[in-house]
Write a protein that binds this DNA or RNA. Structure first.
Lengths: 252, 252
DNA sequence: CCTCTTTATAGTCGTAATGACTATTAGTCG
DNA sequence: CGACTAATAGTCATTACGACTATAAAGAGG
């Protein structure tokens, strides 16, 4: 892990360290917080008040503090930006780390990006003195600050892929949900329509994906037949996976 | 990306920056370099000469230099440790970033881990003054230094998963290979035996996975019928995926 | 040179999974 | 009540897959 060669640049070597020097970087976390609301994929963004990129939307985030891990920092920022008192149940997953030397014009910043998934209803209350975070439609975003377009796109791609072979979709749903709502998560993230009976068959055939709440039902938007309610099951993976419809024609 | 709140600890704020301070960390890359040689999964490791963890095996790695990205640093280290002059064709993929505050007892080090895959024949020549890197069997590794056990396990898991739905396996193979060799990559990484005709059928049915080199054949270890030679095709993903045999019994 | 062993390759067969449907049920709205 | 909407049930043909059997082409050893 540590350099065994004298290639590192100038800088102070802390006591008890190698004889080799290193260059310190600032380390931050960036959060791609996603939710599905009414068939629309939304991301939590903050408006920058100062240069660079003043007035642009940016991902919420902040510095990793000296005694916390990036994961802890991400969860702390998530609580601050969403205003939720308990974020312990939310799905938070490390996405990738962005290290291009010029990604922040002011200084060298290495950012560990996380993707977080929220069920529908969270109010975007920014906590106290924080800049107000807002939910914006994933489509219909202008260019974001820094390399945040790429981070957000990577988050979308990752989440879309994980829907195929994990039970991740339930993280977008409240504790009790209908299969129609679950299907809408898939359709919204993938941007494709799915056949309802087939989706249903597949989900129910996967043990531990969802479990029915006996006797419970809910009117979906007031119209149509009431749907049975389900909650997330214990399974984490989908075997076999629920593949998104392939657009590629297969040459014989 | 940058803190909008005054929570960061003491430290100097660079010119043109927020009024908020930050704490600098050292940033390194760690490499999980894997290869399959003769049905055995091997990892490239270096022996530590000094405390902490003196005498233990560790992943190759080093500091990210001030003007390079982590990816660049990883490729530089990869070239140094393997002694290969051209590592541009090798598969190198960011794995995850490890940020636990106590992962290095000497100081705060954030490490961006990469997984690299090599075809069989590379000699483990450590370049020049570098500690000699060696190929060791993935099984039969004692505890490694720092959190490198975890990093290596994460790399193994990631690679195993990506074999299922990408064409990654060809990265373990030389430019020309037989289907038997390709199958051995799967079997070695997954640790399971596969049915040869079924594997063959699946690979050949996936357009762009491999393409046959017309007329070419090779004796596999001197015994048996000569096998046709293939090279990697243009495809990156496998649709549908090549799932590893599931050990889980499905309750009806 | 003949047979055994080894590895590659071809093909078969039944079952599971999937995509494209149709039909029925249970609600609201006007 | 009848139109409309959404959930749920079921059908059917095709594809994919796991478990096999069979054949082909090489070397080894007597």
């Amino acid at each position: 892990m540590l350099a065994r060669e004298g290639r590192a640049p100038g800088g102070k070597a802390p006591e008890g360290y190698d004889k080799y020097a290193f260059e310190p970087f600032a380390v931050t976390v960036d959060l791609a917080v996603l939710t599905v609301r009414g068939g629309v994929l939304q991301a939590l963004l903050v408006e920058r008040g100062q240069e660079p990129y003043a007035g642009r939307w940016a991902l919420p985030g902040g510095f990793v503090l000296p005694h916390e891990s990036a994961e802890t920092a991400a969860r702390r920022e998530l609580a601050e930006e969403t205003g939720l008192s308990d974020v312990s149940g939310l799905h938070l997953e490390q996405l990738r780390t962005y290290t291009e030397p010029d990604r922040d014009p002011r200084m060298r910043v290495v950012s560990v990006a996380y993707a977080a998934l929220l069920p529908d209803p969270p109010e975007p209350r920014g906590g106290g003195d924080a800049a107000q975070a807002q939910w914006l439609r994933y489509n219909a975003l202008g260019p974001l600050a820094f390399d945040h377009d790429r981070i957000l796109a990577d988050a979308h791609e990752r989440v879309g892929a994980k829907l195929e072979y994990t039970c991740l979709a339930t993280s977008f749903c409240p504790p009790e949900f209908t299969l129609g709502e679950l299907q809408q998560v898939y359709e919204t993230v993938w941007g494709t329509a799915l056949d309802r009976p087939n989706f249903r068959r597949k989900v129910l055939a996967t043990p531990g994906f969802v479990e029915q709440i006996p006797g419970a039902a809910r009117l979906t938007g007031g119209r149509g037949k009431p749907a049975a309610l389900y909650r997330a099951g214990g399974a984490k993976a989908l075997h076999p996976p629920l593949l998104r419809p392939t657009s590629e024609g297969r040459p014989s």
